[in-house]
Amino acid sequence: MTYRLFSFAMALFWVFVQQTCLCCAKWACYDLRGTLPANVWPAGVPEERPRDLRRFVLQQIALLAALIALAAADLWILPPVHPHSNNSPSLVWQFLCTVMLILDGGLVSFEWRIYRLHAVRGADPGAAGARFAFWWTTGCLILYAIWFGGALSVARRYGLNPLEWEFLCLFYFRIVNGLYLVLEGSMGVIALLLWRNLRREEGRHVPA
């Protein structure tokens, strides 16, 4: 139980860090959007900056609270798929890992937007970023639903034992880990490109 509690606490801490970065990145995008010429803003879209940001922060708080509640329920209330001493066979744990993947996708989307706002004059890839975030979230949730829908069905029909079920969960976690790696690598590359651009400009600018 102590180990499971520790794992959940670590994962929820990572979610909290991701959400902190997301809120800061969203604020940064809104602030930098103000540098765009008026004709780049989407027609008819009102400037809802404070309200929009507040809503986003509240959504993140609600998501974290829901995840904490789910983790607590998984630890102390929900009946386990089978008795286990680690979190791998838990569907809640796997869902938490999927949520972390979704949040990472959001971070990549915001980071790309900040990079493009700086690199390309008068262009706002906000709509493309929002589309990416939407489809990424949908894709991750579909992956989770399809994988575990199939896994539960196979486990029931073929009478998988606890260890075999755990392997199915671990395999899903490795897929998620692979996708994390793609996202983390992308974040690193985008940050590297932004740093390179800012450093080049630094040579052409003497600070006041």
Partner: peptide, 22 residues
């Protein structure tokens, strides 16, 4: 994957710190 994620994270954090330094 854990090792590569750690390395990718550290690359990202390093670049972020370099930007923060500018």
């Amino acid at each position: 994957t854990n090792m590569m994620c750690s390395a990718a994270d550290i690359l990202f954090i390093f670049c972020f710190l370099r930007i923060a330094d500018i």
